[in-house]
Every structure is written in structure tokens, then in C-alpha cells.
């Protein structure tokens, strides 16, 4: 349903662009949750903003590539055209709900505003739809909460309100950028459960962006691992966690404390991610890779399909699979 092809987001002058997202491609099917995972600065948020057409202006821009929502390239549309042309069927939720909500307006009005824009109904009808949406996101006591202000709600409830607003346009694709990172774990587990339920009930696809491998394992159907602006590995979630093939994916999993409980020392990935634009040739992970070979430093690694639906950007993936 959503297809991202060769998406490249650049900053800097047109004559010397620096690619902060470089050739990212993925697809998202109906009712599927794709986890896009990576560390800070890897380009995962920029990818999500580019998909939504929300890149800050002036600043980063889509230099190459397309984002096809049911065959229509949304990167070519202005925001108002997206709503008018009925291509506004994507919605986004963010990490910090407090900064996304207007602190001096009742939440019922804020949800109803989104309903008015997308459904052309107003007044009591919009408010009653807002109440339905609050029920949908399992807000306790939805009718009462319509008249609450954001500061009267807890962090988890605010994120439920944000999800309700996002659902007002009946999205086919929901882009969720670290929606549970600011929440406590006992609240996080409830919000993740809600997203899974909504995905199944509404047949909605979710692009879930996170830095947390644990959250991805809990929620996603498929996973794309990003590093330095590139997707380095994509696979179904069981396959990725059972048999990671990229050295970076493996390193990320190994250094999680919860996978090592009792170990004397944690395995680490040495060094830091490269500054965008500084890797001129070869693999972006070569500097930190434990299994690096000479060729990795000069030749761009191939994108290999090691098994059905499992792609890895590495010349020498874990567990063999070198080009025949």
C-alpha cells in the first residue's frame, strides 16, 4: 500500500548535498507494522518526516526518490493538496504528546478540529465523533474527558489523545515516531497493546520508529534496521531476532543488558556512527565492524537477499551467504 523507493534526503547546498537519508526503500502492506529501528542520528526520524511530507522548511529536502501511497507520489504534493486530493490518509504521532497538544484548548475541541477538517462535519456531530475516537483509543470515561485540558491528563492519556486525533482522518498509514519513549514501562506496554489492536481492527498499517530493540520485538511484524542513513537489514521480526545477518544488528542486540543478564561485561560496538557526509567510499559500518575486510573500506556493499524477504546490506553477512 505504501511504497518508499530510493528515498534520499539531503541537507546543504544543491551543488554539494550531504545525504542524511541515502537510498531508503521499503514497502508497507495493509495491517502490517514495520519497525524502523536505529540509534540517534541514523536518519529514522528524517525518513518518517519525509514520508509524511513534513520535513522542516527550509532545511532538509527529498533529493531523489518517491513515496507512493496507493500509487500516488506524495512527495510531489503540497500539504493542502494532500488533504484536498484525498491523499491525507496518513497520520503521524510523536514522542512527546505535551508539545503536540495545545495546552489552552479542551481535548474534545482539539479532536473535533481534526474531524472537521477531514470529514466536513461540525458542531455536535464532530464532538460526538471525537467521543467515539476517545472510546476507540480506550480512554477511560471518554465523555467526561472531552472537556479536560491536556495538563489534567497523564502522559499515557495524552498519547491516547494524540492517537485519537491521528485516527480522525481514518488513516491507512499511521507513522509513529518513538510514541512510547517518554512513557514509563507500565504505560508503554498499554500503548503498544493499543496500537496493535487498532492495527488489527482498522486494518491500518503502522510505520513504527524507535531506538528500542525490545519494543520492536514486542510489536513489529517486520523490521528495518537503519544505520548512518541506510537500511542495513530488513526481515520478518522472528527471522531478524533469530538469525540477524548484519554485524550491526547483531551488535545492537548483543549490547542490550536484558539479553546478557548475569554476564560479567557487556559486549559493545566500538567507536561512534560516522558524521553524515564523511564516509566517501565503502561500507558505512566498516569503521566499527568487527569482521571488516579490506574490500569493505573501498567498495559499497551489495544489497543481498539472503533468504525470502530478508535483505542485508553487507558483502560478508553473518552466517555466510556470500555472492555465488
Amino acid at each position: 500500500m505504501l511504497s518508499v523507493r530510493d528515498l534520499t534526503v539531503s541537507v546543504g547546498p544543491a551543488t554539494a548535498p550531504v545525504d542524511i537519508v541515502a537510498g531508503v526503500s521499503f514497502g508497507l502492506a495493509k495491517g502490517e507494522i514495520l519497525g524502523l529501528v536505529g540509534e540517534s542520528g541514523c536518519g529514522k526520524s528524517m525518513t518518517s518526516l519525509a514520508v509524511m511530507g513534513l520535513l522542516p522548511q527550509p532545511g532538509p529536502r527529498v533529493r531523489v526518490g518517491e513515496v507512493l501511497l496507493e500509487g500516488c507520489d506524495v512527495t510531489q504534493l503540497q500539504p493542502w493538496q494532500r488533504v484536498e486530493a484525498g491523499h491525507g490518509r496518513m497520520a503521524m504521532i510523536f514522542q512527546e504528546p505535551m508539545t503536540s497538544l495545545n495546552p489552552v484548548r479542551r481535548i474534545g475541541d482539539q479532536i473535533a478540529e481534526a474531524v472537521r477538517v477531514h470529514e466536513g462535519i461540525s458542531g455536535a456531530a464532530a464532538l460526538s465523533r471525537a467521543c467515539e475516537l476517545l472510546e476507540l483509543v480506550r480512554m477511560p470515561d471518554p465523555r467526561m474527558q472531552l472537556s479536560a485540558y491536556p495538563h489534567q491528563l497523564s502522559g499515557g492519556q495524552r498519547q491516547r489523545v494524540m492517537i485519537a486525533i491521528a485516527l480522525a482522518c481514518r488513516p491507512q498509514v499511521l507513522v509513529a515516531d518513538e510514541p512510547t519513549t517518554a512513557l514509563d514501562v507500565t504505560i508503554q506496554v498499554q500503548i503498544l497493546g493499543l496500537l496493535r489492536e487498532l492495527c488489527n481492527r482498522l486494518d491500518m498499517a503502522i510505520l513504527f520508529i524507535t531506538h528500542d530493540m525490545g519494543v520492536v520485538a514486542q510489536l513489529a511484524d517486520r523490521v528495518a534496521v537503519m544505520y548512518a542513513g541506510r537500511i542495513v537489514e530488513t526481515a520478518a521480526v522472528d527471522e531478524l531476532f533469530g538469525k540477524p545477518r548484519h554485524h550491526y544488528t547483531r551488535g545492537l542486540m548483543d549490547c542490550m543488558p536484558s539479553r546478557n543478564s548475569g554476564a560479567r561485561r557487556l559486549p559493545t560496538i566500538s567507536g561512534q556512527p560516522p558524521v553524515p557526509g564523511t564516509v566517501a567510499a565503502g561500507c558505512v559500518f566498516a569503521l566499527r565492524c568487527a569482521a571488516v575486510r579490506d574490500v569493505c573500506r573501498v567498495a559499497t556493499p551489495p544489497r543481498m537477499e539472503v533468504s525470502r524477504g530478508h535483505e542485508v546490506l553487507c558483502a560478508f553477512p553473518l552466517g555466510g551467504g556470500e555472492l555465488p
Binding site: V189, G193, V216, A217, Q218
Partner: peptide, 22 residues
Amino acid sequence: LVAAIPKPDPSKRILGAIEMGE
């Protein structure tokens, strides 16, 4: 608290079953 830790293992999913209030 222990049950809510997102375990990095897709075969041990806990979602859906937990409603623990705020």
C-alpha cells in the same frame, strides 16, 4: 514492572494481555 519490560524476543510477546492502569 518486570512483566512490562519489552523483551527483545518476538516469541515472548506480552501485548494485549496487560491492562494495569496509571
